[in-house]
């Protein structure tokens, strides 16, 4: 009565086939990442030197280093974060801890989701119209970072809100029942227990921001500007735009140069991701429930 039937055999074959299929898909997914990284390291690796990182580009951007672009990217990302992180966290706190479920909050949630779906080139045009022209910031780090900030806001909000909501509701109840206000509850219990997730979201955001080209192209980044920015009202070079420039706009660029720039950019992003993962692991190890 317990013998294997033809149906069992067929189900097993299907099961095995599906498993192999899904496995192949997974490998195919990882393959491009490995190829990109491999290519960059093999072809761009020899470009990397202390001088490459710290010298200005020379000879029509075909020689020299990438220092102004590296510094510019750090400027753009830092200013963008200074704007988007406080606003994003405050908005997420409001939506998650204070707001009641009304048509207003639902509309705001919808707006956030839609903001996340707007293509970056559209953000770029908005940035030109709003910050460069209307607010008369001109093409500057400020205008570019504001554009980047608006682009990254939804991600900061969503990541923050998710980590806030991962804090069990019973902790809030416990606080409220002892007479704590919402803010006391947030400050003493909710934030300390969600900060790891929030920071992870923020740092991942940094890596995305660092690679953006379109939003900064018209708002604050310059193709060639071998000076370091002195204030947020200056223009600046940026790694992403520099890569775009030497790959498509400049002739006689040594073949390996774009790979070197790309490797620096991706190295920056990966380093930030590594920091974020390490940080999260560390913070997670400290919380227990």
């Amino acid at each position: 009565m317990f013998e294997r039937t033809e149906l069992n055999a067929r189900n097993d074959r299907t099961q095995a086939l599906v498993k192999v299929l899904f496995g192949v898909m997974t490998v195919l997914l990882a393959l491009p990442v490995l190829i990109i990284l491999g290519m960059l390291v093999v072809r761009g690796g020899p470009m990397i030197s202390w001088e490459f990182l710290t010298a200005d580009p020379t000879n029509g951007m075909t020689e020299g280093g990438i220092y102004p672009a590296l510094v510019g990217t750090i400027w753009l990302v830092s200013v963008a974060l200074l704007i988007s992180v406080p606003i994003g966290i405050a908005a997420a706190l409001y939506l998650s801890e204070y707001a009641r479920d009304t048509w207003m909050t639902r509309a705001i949630n919808l707006a956030i989701i839609n903001l996340a779906g707007v293509p970056s080139i559209v953000h770029a045009l908005f940035g030109v119209g709003a910050f460069v022209l209307f607010f008369k910031f001109g093409t500057s780090i400020l205008a570019a970072s504001l554009t980047l900030a608006i682009m990254t806001l939804p991600v900061v909000i969503v990541a923050t809100r998710e980590s806030l909501q991962a804090v069990p509701h019973e902790f809030r109840e416990a606080c409220w029942n002892m007479g704590a206000t919402r803010w006391q509850t947030i400050r003493r219990i909710v934030l300390p227990n969600s900060i790891s997730g929030i920071l992870t979201g923020v740092i991942l955001e940094v890596s995305r921001t660092a690679g953006e080209t379109a939003p900064i192209m018209f708002t604050g980044a310059a193709m060639f500007l071998p000076f370091l920015p002195q204030s947020v009202m200056d223009q600046t070079m940026a790694l992403s735009l520099h890569l775009f420039a030497i790959s498509t706009q400049v002739t006689d660029v040594p073949e390996e140069l774009p790979y070197g720039v790309a490797l620096v950019l991706i190295g920056l992003v990966l380093a930030l991701n590594a920091v974020s993962i390490g940080f999260r692991t560390w913070l997670r190890g400290r919380k227990k429930w």
């Binding site: 902790f171 109840e173 416990a174 029942n177 007479g179 003493r188 219990i189 300390p192």
Partner: peptide, 21 residues
Amino acid sequence: EIVQVRKRIGMVFQRPNPLPI
């Protein structure tokens, strides 16, 4: 004042809910 009410009237729940501190 509701905060005073919560202070003078303590509450214990079904599931122990110590804070994660």
